[in-house]
């Protein structure tokens, strides 16, 4: 049964690459303002799952509803829906030929049709929110990894999405730069953003997540509050993963 109150409602999601089934039936619903962490070993399908949620990967079967709109319905305008689904990538993926403000303004102008002045104003306020107010004119190659990722978050945020997806947002960062990105994510959460995060930042998961989902081999093995998952995991596979992880 679709959960009509959910911001994101995934049911029976399957995805195969050729003969290999990467997702074997995922069911997960995120309530508005919820921060859900997805953890699991590499190859467990967690990134593929995340990428299915804005159709960067085309699922083989199942249902994905965002704000009650079925993404897999052929009548759904996916470009329209993607405005409501922000995505942050492991490798930032800023446009190298545009400065920070330009990166943020592009979709505002071309997708939302805002005027240059309006887009600029939004870009500047988003950059201020991620602590980079003075970097509007900086090109990506002039920014540190942490700053680039914060610009990327600002770019996603600028469209005022209903939900944001984070695909290992800190994995490509030097350890000393991780904190600045997590701070921005924490602020987003406090501002009430619905977020799904694939990440190995267990400490952050522990104190910021509402729920932690453990995936393995294309399935959700176990989910619960951070205390349940990190403190008293019920499944053997979850325990094994967490032990390895802490080792």
């Amino acid at each position: 049964m679709p959960d009509s109150a959910a911001m994101l409602d995934v049911a029976g999601l399957r995805k195969s690459f050729g003969d290999i089934e990467v997702l074997k039936g995922i069911d997960l619903a995120l309530q508005a303002q919820e921060l859900v962490f997805v953890i699991g070993p590499s190859g467990s399908g967690k990134s593929t799952f995340l990428r299915c949620c804005n159709l960067l990967e085309q699922p083989s079967e199942g249902s994905i509803r965002v704000d009650s709109v079925e993404l897999l319905d052929p009548r759904t305008d996916i470009n329209k829906m993607r405005q409501r689904i922000g995505m942050v990538f492991q490798s930032f993926n800023l446009y190298p030929h545009m400065n920070a403000a330009g990166n943020i303004m592009l979709a505002l102008r071309k997708v939302l049709g805002k005027s240059k002045a309006e887009a600029r104003e939004i870009a500047e306020s988003c950059l201020a929110r991620v602590g980079l107010a003075e970097k509007a004119e900086a090109y990506p190659n002039e920014l540190s990894g942490g700053q680039q990722q914060r610009v990327a978050i600002a770019r996603a945020m600028a469209l005022e999405p209903k939900i944001m997806l984070f695909d290992e947002p800190t994995s490509a960062l030097d350890p000393e730069l991780v904190g600045s990105v997590l701070t921005v994510m924490r602020e987003l959460r406090e501002a009430g953003m619905t977020m799904m995060v694939v990440s190995h930042e267990m400490r952050f998961a522990r104190d910021a997540a509402d729920r932690v989902v453990f995936m393995d081999d294309g399935l959700i093995v176990e989910q619960g509050t951070p205390d349940q998952i990190f403190g008293a995991p019920q499944q053997e596979r979850t325990r094994a993963f967490l032990t390895n992880f802490q080792a």
Binding site: N54, L56, N79, K80, R82, Q83, I85, G86, M87, F89, S91, N93, L94, Y95, L106, A107, K110, V111, A152, R155, A156, L159
Partner: peptide
């Protein structure tokens, strides 16, 4: 890089844009 396409498409830009 594919990430450039993905980043742009994830903000709602269509293929041609």
């Amino acid at each position: 890089r594919k990430g450039q396409w993905e980043a742009a498409r994830s903000t709602g830009l269509n293929f041609a844009q």
